[in-house]
Design a protein around this nucleic acid. Sequence first.
RNA 1: GCGUGGAUCGUAUAGUGGCAAUUACACGACGCUGUAAACGUCGCGCCUUCGGGCUCCGGGGGUUCGAGUCCCUCUCCACGCA
Length: 423
Amino acid sequence: MKKKFSFDIHTELPHDLGRTGTIHTPHGDIQTPAFVTVGTKGTVKAMTPEQVAECGAQVVLTNTYHLYLEPGDAEVAELGGLHKMMNWSGPTMTDSGGFQVFSLGAAYGNKGIGKISRKSQTEELLLPEIAEESEQPKMARIDPNGVTFRSHVDGSAHYFTPEKSIEIQHNLGADIIFAFDECTSPYEPLHYQKEALERTHRWAQRSLEYHKKFCPVRGNSGDNSSHATVEPLQALFGIIQGGRDERLRKESATVLSEMHCEGMGFDGFGIGGSFEKEDMMTAVTWCNEILPKEKPRHLLGIGEPVDLFGAVENGCDLFDCVAPTRIARNGAVYTRDGKINLNNAKFRNDSEPIDGMCACYTCKNYTRAYIAHLFRAKEMLAATLASIHNLHFIIHLVDGMRETMKSGDFVNYKKNFLTQYEK
RNA sequence: GCGUGGAUCGUAUAGUGGCAAUUACACGACGCUGUAAACGUCGCGCCUUCGGGCUCCGGGGGUUCGAGUCCCUCUCCACGCA
């Protein structure tokens, strides 16, 4: 018998919002806080599901937009759903496509624009002529009702509405799905953030309504009365936006907390959108102080070690991030002494493992010099070995946060790690 | 020996008589936070107070206001013919 979606809180930090807990899903439990591995197209790049599991991954997040484009959500459903198709039996999540509104929209054609801005850049980039600087036509166009995407695969046009996004996510069949939102650029001015937030709220309501109406359910067989218990097979998380503005963030957290459809609210919340690096955690805290304590909170797209500590401490339960796997493919790996780039000349004859204290498959068996050679030789194994290490590193870093929150040693754990990592 | 091509920044290439050098790879560094990303940006003769300065296209001569680019010659390489 599959378990219904639910969330239990076990321990809480005495002076902060942080907590440990368990999220129950039809495909198993997630011990929180937990790092969510990103496998956008239904695969964690360069890794087999067995390797992903071996790294300690509890849950994998894939992407609605990418799977809709290829192989198509109907095809995924025909292949038995996301879990079966990708041979991942644990919990899964799907992002709604809301991030692609940003990455194919405001950020398109300019890899210098990310969702995290630096204080030093924000002001100059807010200048309209710079913010609008884009040689390439945008691949996403927003209107009040939805977003027109131009496929990055073949250029074809596709229209996403909240209903469309949720419909696709129903077909994909992940355990936790997200409302369709607009991830705004950190360089948009306040009036735009406000306008986008109102739009995202309307879309959240529509996502919820569509989900309430059409989510696949598990009925209570043998009970034909009007009180038959019917449980949705998928949980829906609403997404807080509001950029770097305190008033908007708080408003968003309040609105989404209270949002409901025929008595049904969101099962949990995502905190999305853009941040300024220097006060990301302030923004996260604005949200978490308002969001209902008894529901899980997912900080979308955040995953550098420093940020993870801050997010956990301030009450986030889940985090997904492409950083560990993406930077791995590009030659960068985490160590307790900070990030290193294996493409640097100095690692060509370094016979140490990436991190001497790391228990991952890569560190147990290979040297920096060998992996550096694989990168230079453009061998696929380089990406695999580096991804295994980075994923293991980040997942276990968060696992350590969970364990030390339980044992009461979180503060020391954080201090010790960051002191060594940032020295 | 004769003939025909060649010789350009580590390698392979582009190159018009004009204020002096293209592209790729390699090399060096940096960046990457709900994946457009096994990717991107910058650097790659020397010096720089970042304005610029100096030196460069096998060697040596020459023509020209000016030559990697034209002429002569030498060296080396490739191919062909003896």
